[in-house]
Design a protein around this nucleic acid. Structure first.
Ligand SMILES: [Mn+2]
Ligand SMILES: [Mn+2]
Ligand SMILES: [Zn+2]
Ligand SMILES: [Zn+2]
Lengths: 157, 157
DNA sequence: CACCTTATCAAGAACAATTCCTATTTAAGT
DNA sequence: ACTTAAATAGGAATTGTTCTTGATAAGGTG
């Protein structure tokens, strides 16, 4: 079941508040995102949501994702030239992309910190958004690699 | 290795160091990037570089940009779903994108600061890269907008 | 210089992700 | 039930990029 969005409103109320309807397709797309918080691509959402709405089209999935994004229920996440991914975590956060397994995870903003503390942003420019992506190797992949190199050379420290 | 580029070597040496040749096309592409530090797209580089090498092809521009990137002479900059842009500033920096005029500018990293100071990055993950983008309104566009609203309502404070 | 071997190139086809178009269906409001 | 606008499915079109291929150019060698 879909949990409530951020504050007092259900996703239905949020969508209605934008003068739009909560349709079966929109709910199914939203539920997939809330269910697997893996930052799926549109195509991944599409294949998943077909289990619920067997003849939804990919264009509709794109439309639903755009609508949900416009209503502020999900965020779109882009990374280099890969396909866009979608995230229902509305808190301010950055993303980590593992180069070996492709996993995407959330990195919360530290309390009382702002990106402007790290980069010199001139006073006279107005910031409305920021997007921060880290790349590297996740702990799982690092461990896997260590096991392999041990097997290859058992005496290595 | 790529890091040599900043220091004692010319771009020619850097490219040779990778077992490649500095051709007319590659130099022309590199010169365009060094000349206008506007973070041009591949197509913008293409039209510009045609002044020097009239029948260079777009595919070759893409190839040159990829080669220069692989050699560490330029960086590729992606932003949301727009076309990739290219940047010859090798220092660690973030980018600001003006929503009204499309201008892209560099924001230097503050001394002795790291992105990890602002986002909670678990100890056991290895960071190899980060990419940081800010969006908003540049000073020029803000001023323009102010002038317009003054003209519309001369008495407004 | 003539010859060989590769790297590089131009041109266009192919590709992946996304957006657009249009006829049909669905839902709200009366 | 009737009217009207919103939403959908399916497919075509677009955009930015990569791939393929045959022709050229550049270094190295004798
Ligand atoms: Mn996220
Ligand atoms: Mn830059
Ligand atoms: Zn991993
Ligand atoms: Zn501007």
């Amino acid at each position: 079941m879909a949990t409530l969005a951020q504050h007092q409103h259900s996703p239905d109320d949020t969508i209605h508040g934008h003068g739009l309807r909560m349709t079966g397709q929109r709910r199914a797309v939203y539920d997939v995102l809330m269910g697997e918080r893996n930052h799926p691509t549109a195509v991944e959402v599409f294949t998943k949501v077909r289990g619920q709405v067997p003849n939804i089209s990919l264009a509709t999935v794109y439309n639903c994702l755009e609508t949900l994004t416009d209503c502020g229920l999900v965020k779109i996440v882009t990374h280099e030239r890969g396909p866009s991914r979608y995230c229902p975590n509305l808190k301010d956060h950055a993303h980590f992309f593992c180069d070996s397994c492709g996993e995407v995870s959330d990195l919360p903003l530290r309390a009382r910190k702002r990106p402007q503390d790290v980069w010199e942003v001139p006073e006279n420019i107005t910031i409305s958004h920021h997007q921060v992506a880290f790349r590297g190797e996740c702990p799982k992949c690092a461990k896997k690699k260590n096991l392999k190199s041990e097997a290859r050379n058992p005496k290595s420290k």
